[in-house]
Design a protein around this nucleic acid. Structure first.
Lengths: 199, 199
DNA sequence: TGCCGCATGTACCGTGTGGTACATGAAGCC
DNA sequence: GGCTTCATGTACCACACGGTACATGCGGCA
C-alpha cells in the first residue's frame, strides 16, 4: 500500500481525530514509562495498535515524537490555565496555590517527562528542541506581568520572575528526586518569605 | 577467549589503570555528545578502541555506564573542592564565586550531562539512580554548615540550604536552555539580594 | 628458542528496531 | 452485486545493537 500520508498540518477529518486520540494515549504512556527508550512496537502494544499503524498515522517515529512533545507541552500549559485564582488572593497565596497544583502527585509523571525532555533537548534531539525555546520565555511573560502589577519596576520584575521560575523548577526537581515533600515545602515557604516578605 | 574478567572492585594493576583511562575518555565523550544514545561501537570509535575492548574491560555496557556515572559525579564534586575560598569573603561573595565557577562555559557539557542523567534517573534507569540519592543530600550538608556558621538556627539553615541549591539548579537549567548569561546572572544577583540582604 | 599470558582485532550471532510490501476485510457508492 | 477506498494486520527487510568465539601478535621468562 502506498500509505500516501495525509494533511501536512492539522485537519479535522476522522483521520485527524484518530491521530489526536493516538497521540493522547502515547503521551499517557510516555509520561508513565519515559520517552528515552520508546519503541513503536512497545508503544503500539501498550495502546492497542500495531506499530504499522503508528507509522501510517504519523509518517515516522520522529514525527510521532514531535507530536508527543507538542501535546506534552500543551498539557503543561493547561496546568496553569486550569488554575483559577480568586481575585482577593495575596501574591504569596497565589504562589502557594500554584505550587500545590504543580506538585500534585498525579502530575508527577508529567513533571518527570518535562525534565526528561529537558535532558534530550539540551543534547539537541530535534523533537525536543522546541522545549528549550519555551522553557523560560513562555512562562516569563505572565510572571513579569504579575510582578509589574504588584509594583515592581520592569527590570526588577524580569529578574524576580526569572528567579521565581528557576526556584520552582529546582525545588520540583528536588521533590521528584527525593520525594521529601515536607522538606521541599518548607524550603518553598522559606523562599516565599524572602520573596514576598514575612506575612 | 575466556575474557574471565578482572577484579570486582577497584584494583591498582595496569588493567585498572587502563580501565580508568578508558572511563575518563568515555566521560569526555559523553559530556560532549550525551549518554542517551551511546553505543559501544560509537564510543569505541571515538576514543580509539574497538567495542570488543569496552566489553572486555567493563564486562557489559551496563557496567560501563555505571562507571561513567560514578566518574561524572566525582568530577562534579571536584568542581566544588577545587574552589578555594579566601577566608575574608562575605557569604554573598563566596556564593558569587561558586556561581561563576559553575557557569564556566567549559563546564557546560558536564552540566548538560548532569541534567541528562537526572532525566534518566527519574525514570529508574539503574546506572543513573545513584545520581538521585546524592542529588540533594550530598550538597545539603556543607550548605547547612555554612548557614549555621552564618548564624541561622538549624531548621532555617536546612530550608535555606535546600532553597539555595534548588535555585542554583534552576538558574543553571535556564542558562543552559537559553544561553542568556546576562539575564540569568541578573536573576542570581536578585536572589543573592533576597538571600543575604542588600549589600 | 620456545612457551605462555594478555591485550587487541575480526568475524560472527541473535535480537530488536524503524520502515515497507502486500493481504484482508469492512464500509460506501453506483 | 461489483467496484473502490480506507483502516488494519502480517510478514518481511536492512540495519545497528550488545555480546561472543576465535585468531593474532607482542612482552616476559625459562
Amino acid at each position: 500500500m502506498d500509505d500516501s500520508h495525509p494533511e501536512g498540518e492539522a485537519g479535522q477529518g476522522a483521520l485527524a481525530d484518530r491521530r489526536a486520540q493516538l497521540v493522547e494515549a502515547a503521551v499517557d504512556h510516555v509520561a508513565a514509562h519515559g520517552i528515552a527508550d520508546l519503541s513503536l512496537r512497545g508503544l503500539g502494544a501498550a495502546i492497542g495498535v500495531s506499530h504499522r499503524m503508528l507509522i501510517h498515522y504519523f509518517g515516522s517515529k520522529e514525527q510521532l515524537l514531535v507530536e508527543i512533545v507538542r501535546t506534552s507541552e500543551r498539557r503543561q500549559r493547561d496546568v496553569l490555565s486550569r488554575l483559577r485564582l480568586e481575585p482577593g488572593l495575596s501574591p504569596a497565596d497565589a504562589a502557594r496555590l500554584l505550587w500545590r497544583h504543580l506538585t500534585d502527585p498525579r502530575l508527577a509523571g508529567q513533571e518527570r517527562l518535562f525534565f526528561e525532555l529537558c535532558g534530550h533537548a539540551l543534547r539537541g534531539r530535534p523533537e525536543a528542541v522546541p522545549v528549550l525555546e519555551g522553557l523560560v520565555t513562555d512562562w516569563l511573560e505572565p510572571l513579569v506581568a504579575a510582578e509589574v502589577g504588584a509594583g515592581a519596576d520592569p527590570a526588577t520584575a524580569r529578574n524576580r520572575a526569572r528567579l521565581g521560575l528557576a526556584t520552582v523548577r529546582g525545588l520540583l526537581l528536588d521533590l521528584l528526586a527525593t520525594g521529601d515533600r515536607a522538606g521541599v515545602d518548607s524550603a518553598m515557604e522559606e523562599f516565599l518569605r524572602l520573596y514576598y516578605g514575612p506575612e
